[in-house]
Design a protein around this nucleic acid. Structure first.
Lengths: 124, 124
DNA sequence: TCTATTACTTACCTAAAGTATCGTAAGGGA
DNA sequence: TCCCTTACGATACTTTAGGTAAGTAATAGA
C-alpha cells in the first residue's frame, strides 16, 4: 500500500493518476520541461487554458511539490515557475506520451509539415 | 502539425493529452493491460468509478480505436473489453507513470507492506 | 412466481472548469 | 494630477464532466 497525505493507493500508478487526473497539469509540466517560464509565457503557450484555471493548476502543482514558484518583488510583478527534482523526473512520462501520440496519428490521423516539438522534448 | 478527426495539434503530446484529458481513461487502460476484462470485472477493480461513467469512458475509448468491445449474445449479457494494437502500445506510458509514482511516494509519502501491482505491469 | 444476474440507460444533482470582468501596485507620459 | 501600462490573480457567474440512484431487458434457477 502507498500513502500520500491521507490518501491510500493500491498501486503507484494510482498515485500518479490521482495527481494528473485533470485536463491541464500534464500540459503545464510539458511546457516547463523545456525551461522555466513566467506565468504569461505559460499562458501564451497553453493558449486554450483560462487564466484562472492556470492559476489554480499552478498552485496545485506547487502544493504537491512538483513545481517551484519564485516571486520577484518588482513592478510590474514577475513570477517564474520551474520544475522541482521530482517534477523533472516526469520527463519519461511525457516522452512516452510524445511517442505514442506519433504512432496514434500515423494510424488514425494525418501529419502535415513538421514541427519543432521534438526539440523541446529532447533538449536535455 | 498533426490532425486527428478535425482537431489540430502542434505536438504529438497534445494528441495523447487530448485523449486522456479526463479522470478515468488511463485507469481503464492500466487494468486492461493485465488482460481482457468484462464490464463487471473492470467495475470491481476500478471500484470508485460509477457504472455510468465507466460505460461512457469505454465508449469513448472504443470510438478512438484504443479498446475493442466484444459482445456475447447470451443472458445474462457478457461483454469483453480488450486493448487494440495501438492501445497495447500505451504500456510504456503507464510503465513510466508506475515508476514515477514510486519515486514520488518515496519522497513525499509512505509505503507499507508490498503489493502485487508490479506483476500486473511486467507480465508481458 | 419471485429473485438473481449482467450490462447498460435514464433523470436528476453537484463539483470542477470556463467566461468575463475587476483589483492591485509602481512608474511613465500628457 | 490623472490616466495608462504591465503582470498577476481575485471575483461572480455559466457551462459541463462526473456522481447518485433508480430502472430495464432477457433468461435461469429456487
Amino acid at each position: 500500500m502507498y500513502y500520500v497525505n491521507d490518501k491510500e493507493f493500491k498501486c503507484s500508478v494510482g498515485v500518479t493518476l490521482d495527481i494528473f487526473n485533470d485536463k491541464w497539469k500534464m500540459s503545464v509540466i510539458w511546457h516547463l520541461l523545456e525551461n522555466d517560464k513566467r506565468f504569461k509565457e505559460l499562458h501564451e503557450e497553453i493558449s486554450e487554458i483560462t487564466q484562472k484555471t492556470l492559476t489554480v493548476k499552478l498552485k496545485e502543482l506547487e502544493s504537491k511539490n512538483i513545481i517551484h514558484r519564485e516571486v520577484f518583488p518588482i513592478v510590474p510583478p514577475k513570477v517564474v515557475y520551474s520544475l522541482t527534482p521530482i517534477g523533472k523526473k516526469l520527463r519519461p512520462v511525457l516522452e512516452s506520451m510524445f511517442n505514442w501520440g506519433i504512432e496514434y496519428v500515423e494510424e488514425f490521423g494525418t501529419i502535415s509539415g513538421d514541427n519543432a516539438c521534438e526539440v523541446k522534448l529532447f533538449k536535455k
